[in-house]
């Protein structure tokens, strides 16, 4: 490719493509940069002047409020707990299930796989699922958030695809030596499976961390709210915790504080993932790729 010189026209096309890509990158990071800069600004200055680079307009008050807000800290810790527990459960369940399904001679493979696949196309829906969760007494507990969604057919397929790619010789040798499937799985397969376990764990954690809907449906007690639901109150329902503003009576001040908190809340809640994800980029991409292999 590089040996052949591009024509003038091709160079123009390439130039256009490159310019478009740069514009897209700007369109994507522009709003993010705005959020970060705005989060350091005094809300009245922001309201009157817009973004400014005059440091006298800067203030850390938003961050101070966010970091001293029990609801946000609590939400953060709740989310950490829910997402971690969910990750452990879903990854174990899916990796365990993916292994037998990857074996060619596994009796019942077709039936079990069909059982899983059907659920990708058809489901009972929100309300019937809610009623099942309710009748199991899981409402308003962590279990409602970590158990019903634990089986991900997509993750099982990812795991299965990975296991299929592993060399089979060692299994067979171990089997001949009289090792049980349990021993084979834990002493041979699992040590080789760190990459897939890592990919699945990343997906599960990020997905659960960013989800608000399950907790919206299943949780009632506000002390159990994960971060996303707390954010929803601040960002979308425009509600500031009355405890914070109990001393401040004025409506205008309340509005000012709610504006102030928004930017800092957006930055504080999104930054950890945005900063961490470049280090894991190749694993995330791998997840998409592995799944696309037949």
């Amino acid at each position: 490719m590089d040996s052949i010189k591009p024509t003038k026209m091709d160079k123009v096309v390439l130039g256009v493509i490159f310019t478009l890509l740069v514009l897209l990158v700007v369109a994507i990071i522009g709003p993010l940069i705005y959020m970060v800069v705005a989060s350091f600004m005094e809300p009245t200055a922001l309201l009157n002047k817009g973004l400014s680079f005059d440091f006298s307009d800067y203030s850390l008050e938003g961050y101070r409020m966010i970091l001293s807000d029990d609801k946000i800290i609590g939400g953060f810790l709740n989310a950490l707990l829910y997402s971690s527990v969910f990750t452990v459960i879903t990854v174990s369940v899916c990796v365990f299930a993916g292994y037998p399904l990857a074996l060619d001679d596994f009796v019942g493979r077709k039936v079990i796989m069909t059982l899983f696949i059907i659920t990708m196309f058809f489901g009972g829906g929100l309300i019937p699922t809610y009623l099942v969760v309710k009748s199991l007494g899981m409402l308003d507990t962590i279990w409602a958030l970590v158990i019903p969604g634990a089986v991900s057919v997509w993750n099982i397929i990812l795991a299965r695809t990975f296991f299929r790619g592993l060399p089979k010789e060692m299994n067979e040798a171990a089997k001949i030596d009289g090792a049980s499937d349990f021993t084979i799985f834990f002493s041979i397969i699992i040590p080789l499976s760190k990459p897939i376990v890592f990919v699945l764990a990343l997906y599960a954690f990020v997905g659960h961390w960013n989800d608000f809907f399950q907790s919206l449906i299943y949780l009632e007690n506000q002390d159990k709210y994960p971060l996303q639901l707390v954010l929803r109150r601040i960002l979308i329902l425009n509600k500031v915790d009355p405890n914070i503003v109990s001393s401040i009576k004025e409506q205008a001040e309340l509005a000012r504080l709610s504006e102030l908190m928004k930017y800092a809340a957006i930055v504080v809640s999104s930054l950890p993932l945005l900063v961490m994800y470049p280090f894991f980029q190749k694993y995330f991409e791998k997840g998409v790729m592995v799944g696309s292999l037949k």
Partner: peptide, 20 residues
Amino acid sequence: FVLPAVVLTIIFKYLPMYGV
């Protein structure tokens, strides 16, 4: 190994289908 996934699928996917 597959049992947990099958049981959870039946409870949280198939039971709601019946619940429809």
